[in-house]
Design a protein around this nucleic acid. Structure first.
Lengths: 352, 352
DNA sequence: GGTGCGTGGACGTGTAATGTCCCGCATGCA
DNA sequence: TGCATGCGGGACATTACACGTCCACGCACC
């Protein structure tokens, strides 16, 4: 059985967005007692014109009183705010979280699905769906999309569908082979995505982790070189995020290297790199795939990861600061919010 | 305390309209099992193109399955319809009623406010407000608006406000003096409305009910004649509806005439005329105000009346068939719906 | 009486919604 | 087996609307 809100989300996905917008306007006016349009627009981060459309509407509904001196809330508006209070958190809790995380890390967009991917396969599926929606929106024609491996990315690949085939688009793996199971290989995922969207794909058949010698000689190979250049020119990168130690072990990284990384505080792994708590890269190395400098120049970088246990790792990668969009779940988002809280407290403590 | 639905009706009435539209599409598809776009558009009374936009959306949401053979509902869509069922009536019950009544009497628009004006002054105020909204929307520049008397019309006049003054507009009484209390006189109401909207007004200082001789001689008077011509040229008429016997008594109509009218089945009164159950006019008479033929040619005729006790009278006037818009309340609307039911049953019984 | 902030009106522009027409295709009937 | 019908979906011109921008005017406060 679904609640009214869940039904509405399906039937009118932007209902909550509009509702929240109007609610916030009303609340802001209430708090400001009497306020002008420009001031209000600034404090709500809206353009003056769209705010005006909304206030005109709220006035017509009798929730707002507007006269030459400015705007104030009506009795009916006050009552509405009070009555809406109990619904606010369940309705907009996630939107609020999204906005908070988006703002703190300077991202373009944050999407949070409810639940915890660690414990619920259903949430993981939803996470995949949300990832698809974001990716589909980002894709244009003749794009190159670099994808990483991992179970979450595999989930995205399985959810991907499209009405109009993206014929001119290329899916490529972001990195070479990483010694994981076949299903979670970047190569596998890139090919699945391409097949499901009617796009093309290319594979990179080299191990990711290379010594300098092997790297140089492989890059002499014309066909390797060619695909590597395609990869590095990707306009969109979509990647998962993992726990550093778990990933290192799964990838059979040298025990000594693992120890070194642990000593340096490695916490998160993403597109083959390891990050510490502050988002600094631990252990940079040669790779045939995407390099850090490529990521920094990529137009759209989408991170997708969920589950309570991944919260810290996600925050670390976000600190790295080159992502544009984050798709995650409620459990991870709450962890991230807690980390933000702590950081802000520390920041205010040191500033004193 | 308001429910979430009530809050939404205030905060996003526009979106709820969209929601209803999508719900009805989904339901129609469900009932039709498998149906084409053109057929569906016809049965929902929508243009093909807007239906297409909606079905594309519903398909993207996974609620509708579309293939070369036609459209059918998906499992998720079926579930959504079931889950929405309990909310439907509270959300759209009034819209449903509006549409039903609108369609049955061939009106352009029906507006229903919740409650019963007979028992709740609050509902009566809301009725007034709704009437204002309709009237404001209908008014253009340099219009002549004829208004009748009555307590409901007085309520409309008291609620009327406007941001932009309607300078070139004229409010006039639809009929002459009718021996009611001053507050409910058409003259009074016309002047109140004019004052509240910054418009002009003219008065008609003659008794409404006239013998042939008096009528002829009064119409010789140039200033009477002039205002009468203005009245009869009104582009908008807004009128109340009353119970025939109550109004006749209040207006001190001759006892013999009252008896005659009662014998003829007089049920409702509006703009000075008396109607029987089927909307036929009982007792036509000379008047210095609006005549029936004027009403028939008026561009916009707005009826406004509410309260359970008025239901029958409203239905009678609607049968008369020259109104464009009806503004009423829930209690009256339910009475009207019951009458429609009965009529339709009788109609189907005779057709057999 | 000046100054600043307020609303509301006007207007140009770009984009999304809509009306219209058409195509290729599957299906069912002759 | 062939033909007609009705299907979804693509294309495109037109329209309507939302939005950014600018300005006039009025009110309150200094």
């Amino acid at each position: 059985m679904q609640t009214l809100i869940e039904i509405q989300q399906q039937l009118l996905p932007d209902l909550l967005v509009v509702m929240r917008k109007r609610y916030l306007i009303l609340r802001q006016v209430m708090l400001s007692d009497m306020v002008g349009r420009r001031t209000l627009a600034a404090s709500l981060d809206m353009t003056e014109r769209v705010l005006r459309a909304e206030t005109d509407f709220l006035k017509a509904q009798g929730l707002l009183l507007i006269d030459a001196a400015g705007m104030r809330i009506s009795e009916a508006g006050k009552r509405l705010l009070e009555d809406m209070e109990p619904f606010y958190k369940t309705m907009f809790g996630l939107s609020e979280l999204e906005e908070r995380i988006r703002h703190h890390f300077g991202l373009k967009q944050v999407v949070i699905v409810s639940g915890d991917s660690d414990s619920s396969p259903h949430t993981k599926r939803e996470l995949g769906k949300a990832g698809c929606a974001v990716l589909s929106k980002a894709m244009k024609q003749n794009d190159v999309i670099a994808v990483t491996g991992g179970s979450t990315m595999a989930q995205v690949a399985n959810q991907l569908t499209t009405q109009t085939p993206f014929k001119g688009n290329w899916f490529v793996p972001a990195r070479g082979g990483l010694g994981e199971s076949l299903d979670y290989q970047a190569n596998t995922i890139a090919s699945t995505m391409a097949k499901r969207t009617g796009a093309q794909y290319r594979m990179l058949h080299v191990p990711d982790h290379l010594g300098e010698e092997a790297y140089t000689s492989l890059m002499q190979e014309p066909n390797v070189r060619e695909i590597v250049e395609v990869i590095r020119s990707a306009r969109i990168v979509i990647h998962g995020i993992g726990d550093a130690m778990v990933m290192a072990r799964r990838r059979r990284v040298d025990a000594t290297v693992v120890e070194a990384m642990e000593a340096e505080g490695a916490l998160a792994e993403s597109f083959g790199y390891y990050f510490d708590r502050s988002g600094a890269v631990v252990h940079k190395m040669l790779t045939a795939g995407l390099r850090l400098e490529d990521i920094m120049e990529t137009e759209v970088v989408i991170a997708i990861a969920g589950g309570r246990s991944k919260g810290e790792a996600i925050a670390a990668v976000m600190h790295f600061g080159h992502d544009d969009v984050l798709v995650t779940d409620e459990a991870a988002a709450l962890e991230i919010a807690a980390i933000i809280d702590k950081e802000e407290q520390e920041a205010s403590a040191t500033s004193k």
